[in-house]
């Protein structure tokens, strides 16, 4: 049991690191396309690790199944949404940042 606790703590810590660093990236990166990478870190890696960490703490299978469904859902919809956003932004002509240009 103590092993599970430790493993869960490690997963949660890693997930926490990922979501915060992704959020900082979202704020700090220079343009839309680079920011998509940052949200990828938070939404897939961070959220996934936190949900896995919670999964190791569940005592009932009902909660576990729901966590897995949420995880599956986020893993499928997150990248789809960002893919669409990038595609649509490119089509609408959202400019790409080059070195030396101002941040936008």
């Amino acid at each position: 049991m103590i092993l599970l606790e430790i493993l869960s703590a490690v997963l949660l810590a890693a997930g926490t690191l990922f979501i915060v660093s992704g959020a900082v990236g979202l704020l700090r990166f220079p343009d839309f396309y680079t920011r998509i990478h940052a949200t990828g870190i938070t939404d897939s890696a961070g959220a996934g690790l936190i949900l896995l960490g919670l999964l190791l703490r569940t005592t009932t299978w009902e909660a576990g199944v729901r966590l897995l469904i949420i995880l599956l859902f986020l893993v499928v919809t997150g990248p789809t949404a960002t893919h669409l956003l990038a595609h649509a932004a490119r089509r609408d002509g959202v400019p790409v940042w080059r070195k030396g240009h101002p941040r936008r």
Binding site: V76, T77, T80, H83, L84, H87
Partner: peptide, 12 residues
């Protein structure tokens, strides 16, 4: 025209 979205939506 978004193939990924089409597949994902029909799965969802």
């Amino acid at each position: 025209e978004y193939k990924v979205l089409r597949v994902v939506s029909s799965l969802l």
